[in-house]
Amino acid sequence: MPAINKALTLKDLPTPPSDKIGWPWTEENQPLPERMPDGSEWPRISIVTPSYNYGQFIEETIRSVLLQGYPNLEFIIIDGGSNDNTVEIIKKYEEYFAYWVSEKDRGQTDAINKAYQHCTGDLFVWLNADDSYIEATILQKVVNYYLQGYQLIAGGCQDTYTQENGKNDIYYSYPTTFERYLKFWISNCNYTQPSVFVTKEIVDKCFPLDWQLYILMDYQFFLRVLSQQPKSIYVNQAWTNCKKHGLNKTMSDYPGGISEFYQVTTWESKKLPLLQRYLFLNELKDYAVIHSLLDNFNSLTPMQVLSSLASRPIIVRWPLFWKLLLKYSIGTKAYSWLKKLAN
């Protein structure tokens, strides 16, 4: 199945469900012409969607991609053998995919790795099966930045809560470096993954990702991207709608998250110069002690906090350690009152 070499419109796609209106069901935008003004092909954009039992969301994802009005699109879906209506929906649109498969796999990271083997685009992004583009001209905006020479093009995400009491928020990616991004306790992993497009020459050096990663495959990916110092642009516009419905991995209390951080940073820090890596790994050990204190906050006494110095005296250089010690000593309420007073 080849890449789509024409801009699709509503009349090309199957009729949407009768209860769906607006974007991307009954609305579209003016598509780009089949070729650029100089007569050459538009840069190819590869979009990968890993999927498993998200039939309630994936049709909106698919339509938001196909109705981008973009003439050189390579759309790949890797489904993990869904047993809901996901495959039925995929088959409804299958003529517009460059490749798709539904088979048992080893999880989301494995699916993304498999998908990348089929990617031939100049730009790459993965869009999860419960995410969608927020309007019809996102790819047109992205390609304009690509044609200016940018290798990492980052927009924002709007988190949309399906629960009635949820508050919709917009998040943006912010410039950072490989060294700073390694220190996850500082950077807070500030990349809005479905809105970040990266060029093939950069991405080719990032795959395969560690298939065993359950939640931090995007963190590993962006570390590998940043290690190559791409020419980057950060755009304060929401490009994707990321649904928060309670089943998201990022909303689950996954106990292995911190272990994955240690695993990824320990491995990827090998890209640092030897001395710099030694210093980083020492900071990582410091943070492991402090994180243990945070994790056991309700069960420790001030003396037990101080005793952590015996195993790791160097943590005294961390302001966070002294904040924790103060909070343990005077209690959370008094600490909060002091913070307000200080401000």
Rank of each mutant, 00 (worst) to 15 (best):
Q229A: 13
K271Q: 15
V264H: 01
K285I: 02
S227F: 03
N248P: 05
S232V: 09
I258F: 13
N241P: 02
F261E: 00
S259K: 09
L274C: 00
G257A: 01
G256L: 13
K271Y: 06
K231H: 14
D253L: 04
S252Q: 15
L247N: 13
W239A: 15
Q263M: 06
Y254A: 01
M217L: 07
Q276H: 05
G256E: 10
Y254D: 03
Q220P: 03
L284F: 05
C242P: 00
Y278F: 13
Q229C: 12
V235W: 07
T265I: 09
L281V: 06
V264M: 04
H245L: 10
E260P: 11
G257S: 05
L281F: 03
Y262R: 04
Y254P: 01
L272K: 07
N248H: 07
N248K: 07
L272V: 11
F280N: 01
T240R: 12
T240D: 05
Y262T: 00
Y278E: 10
G257D: 02
K270S: 13
L272G: 01
L274D: 07
M217A: 01
K271D: 06
Y278G: 01
S232K: 03
G246I: 05
I233K: 04
P273F: 00
F222W: 03
Y278C: 02
I258N: 02
V225M: 02
E260T: 09
I258M: 14
F280K: 08
A238D: 09
S252D: 04
R224W: 01
K271C: 03
S232D: 06
G256N: 13
N236D: 15
R277L: 03
K285A: 11
E260W: 09
S259D: 12
P273R: 06
W239K: 10
N248G: 09
F221H: 08
A238I: 09
K249Y: 02
Y219E: 03
L247V: 07
L284W: 03
Y254N: 06
V264K: 00
H245G: 03
L281D: 04
T250A: 13
E260R: 06
P230V: 11
T266A: 08
R277Y: 04
L247M: 11
T266Q: 07
E260Y: 08
R224F: 02
L274S: 06
F280V: 03
Q237R: 10
Y262W: 06
F221R: 02
N236F: 15
Y234L: 10
L226Y: 11
E283C: 08
S227K: 15
L279W: 08
T240N: 09
V264T: 11
A238T: 07
L226N: 02
A238E: 12
E260G: 05
M217I: 00
R277V: 04
V225P: 00
Q229I: 14
M217G: 11
S232Y: 05
